[in-house]
């Protein structure tokens, strides 16, 4: 669906040339230290920023060639939260950017555990609740603007979707993302800080360090203790790797 061909940024913030692809139905996690260039990479993938060398293609067509409006029916972006200005109701906010079927809105509210809040003003919500509303809005845009000819569910880009969520909500969100990815053949790319979430839920991981991709592959291939220690400069211990599942990490006190 989305392919990168030596996509790079040459002026700061720089990004070394990247090749790769994002496929329908998969959950791709972008991890890396603060300031590594994760959000910059995400804004390249969304077309908000144009790459200065190489190309990124969506459905075989250069992102720069897509009209902004048409692009919005193929990919949605949920950037990091900005302080809300006005008192939208939750339902109104979810419908921004599309003309959704009320049934879809209700379903998304239910899936994001927001049904009780549907009539509330977003100014009265907590940071975590607002974050779930914004994610629901992105999914709503993709699903309700999807053309009948589309064989997949489009591309959903999330910048740190779990940053304000408690541990239970993190689990529910990551499960829900996987569910959407499989059910609608949606491609989901999210920037994550929590390596354990990436390890548990992502199909593939890109590790970004210092404006370049340090490693990519399955969580087990990418998230090795040696590599993480050198990239993050943190002392880590592996909690489980024996059962063939993905590795889990804890800090050494």
């Amino acid at each position: 669906m989305l392919t990168l061909h030596g996509a790079a940024l040459t002026t700061p913030p720089t990004l070394a040339p990247l090749d790769g692809s994002v496929r329908p139905g998969e959950l791709l996690a972008i991890v890396g230290p603060n300031g590594a260039g994760k959000s910059t990479l995400l804004s390249l993938l969304s077309g908000f920023r144009a790459c200065q060398a190489g190309a990124i293609r969506l459905d075989g067509r250069d992102l720069a060639q897509w009209p902004v409006y048409a692009l919005a029916s193929r990919r949605a972006m949920v950037a990091q939260q900005e302080p809300p200005g006005f008192d939208w109701r939750v339902e109104e906010l979810i419908a921004l950017g599309s003309d959704p079927d009320p049934a879809l809105v209700t379903q998304l509210l239910d899936q994001m555990d927001l049904l009780d809040l549907s009539d509330r003003s977003i100014l009265t919500l907590s940071g975590g609740e607002r974050q779930r509303v914004l994610i629901a809005r992105g999914v709503c845009q993709l699903l309700s603007r999807r053309s009948h000819a589309a064989t997949d569910g489009g591309l959903l880009l999330l910048d740190e979707p779990t940053s304000a969520l408690d541990i239970g909500q993190q689990q529910r969100l990551m499960r829900q993302l996987r569910h959407w990815a499989h059910q609608h053949a949606m491609a989901i790319v999210c920037v994550l800080h929590d390596l354990n979430l990436a390890s548990l839920y992502a199909d593939r991981v890109w590790l970004i360090d210092n404006g370049a991709r340090a490693a990519h592959g399955t969580p087990a291939q990418v998230l090795t203790p040696e590599r993480l220690t050198s990239v993050y400069g943190a002392e880590l211990q592996i909690l489980s790797n024996a059962t063939g599942t993905a590795p889990l990490f804890a800090l050494v006190p």
Binding site: A76, G97, G138
Partner: peptide, 11 residues
């Protein structure tokens, strides 16, 4: 009102 990056993503 969604913020510029998200709004661009919404068309």
């Amino acid at each position: 009102q969604l913020g510029e990056t998200t709004a661009h993503g919404a068309g």
